[in-house]
């Protein structure tokens, strides 16, 4: 066996060397200049991004501590080990990387899977946490790293990775690892911050997943930013309404839900939440009007159960005091 290993290694080295020589003949387009969004800077390095050298298998906690630190959260990589590290998998899962910032009053936003969104975030001053695959698509070896900048002229990315505080990668090498890793990247946002590359669906999904673990005021800030940016999106109004509801401000909640219903009259979730808010405001008749057009049988769980619940509450309120003066209740939208 050993005898055959040496010639094989030599053959491999020869192949590698000849391929390297060959590469001189192939011209490839640069990546960064071709993906530079309008207004993005040509050179960025977010040098203030903290660095935590990773311990064995723990690039997840190290990378997360860096992007949280850049968002003014004071947390070490060690403190994040019990939060995102999965011992039997020798690594950290994407879902938990996205969820962990909520513990610190931050929300994570997974970027669109193209290079220009990574560049746009860096240009806006946000380091980007990426998932790389250094194996093959069929034999993956996963690694999290933090991109802290790029140099358009040299077509290079600057990273904090593993035990390296600062390492420069050619954009092509970066792309191979990122592409084979499914082009996954995330940034950490303060509630109310909208990413530079924001896509309404991705953002509203992220804000919705943030909602339950967040304080009502943080959730409100996240959805309020969405209302300002995308006022035509019913989910933005629903989210802000729910934050208002959870803070006990039922009138504000009803106003936001009513706007969602106006934008999307078929939206049973918005109607249900509006009905519940109206009920809390002492307006069961108005609440009932909201639920009248909703077809229960067409709804999926848990919305279905919620609408049935709301109906029961309305019925209970009406039978408890059949004559309620609703003249102070605002007219239906």
């Amino acid at each position: 066996m050993k005898k055959r290993a040496a010639p094989q290694a030599a053959r491999f080295a020869f192949l590698a060397a000849s391929l390297l020589l060959l590469s001189a003949c192939v011209t490839r387009e640069p990546f960064i200049p071709a993906n530079l969004p309008a207004g993005a800077r040509a050179h960025v390095e977010l040098a203030a991004t903290p660095f935590y050298p990773q311990k064995k298998y723990q690039c997840g906690p190290a990378a997360l501590a860096a992007v949280l630190g850049a968002s003014n959260v004071d947390v070490t990589a060690d403190a994040l080990v019990p939060v995102v590290y999965l011992p039997a998998r020798h690594g950290s899962l994407q879902v938990e990387m996205l969820a962990a910032p909520r513990k610190f009053g931050r929300l994570a936003y997974p970027l669109s899977r193209n290079l220009d969104s990574v560049i746009a975030e860096l240009s806006a001053g946000r380091p980007v946490l990426v998932l790389h695959n250094y194996g093959l698509p069929s034999w993956p070896r996963w690694h999290y790293a933090v991109v802290i900048g790029y140099d358009s002229a040299r077509d290079e990315f600057i990273l904090r990775s593993g035990t390296k505080r600062r390492t420069e990668w050619s954009a092509r090498t970066f792309m191979v690892a990122w592409h084979n890793g499914g082009r996954w990247a995330m940034v950490v946002l303060r509630p109310g911050e909208i990413p530079a590359s924001a896509d309404p669906t991705l953002y509203l999904d992220a804000a919705a997943d943030f909602e339950r673990a967040a304080k009502p005021e943080d959730s409100r800030a996240a959805f309020d930013a969405a209302v300002q940016r995308w006022p035509q999106q019913p989910v933005a109004w629903i989210g802000r309404g729910t934050a208002e509801y959870r803070a006990g401000r039922f009138a504000n909640a009803a106003r936001d839900y009513a706007e969602a219903v106006r934008l999307d009259p078929e939206n049973a979730g918005a109607r249900n939440n509006l009905a519940q808010s109206l009920l809390d405001l002492g307006c069961p008749a108005r609440a009932r009007e909201q639920l009248a057009p909703v077809e229960i049988d067409a709804l999926a769980s848990p919305l279905r159960e919620a609408v049935l619940d709301t109906r029961r509450h309305i019925d209970a309120a009406v039978s408890a005091s059949p004559v309620i003066d609703e003249s102070r209740c605002s007219p239906p939208p």
């Binding site: 669906t201 909602e211 519940q276 769980s301 848990p302 709301t310 509450h313």
Partner: peptide, 21 residues
């Protein structure tokens, strides 16, 4: 009231994906 009838926004963003939730 809060726990009973308000539906989480995450259940409303993409109703088809949330179908079995």
């Amino acid at each position: 009231a809060a726990s009973a009838a308000i539906v989480d926004t995450s259940a409303l963003v993409t109703p088809d994906r949330a179908a079995d939730m």
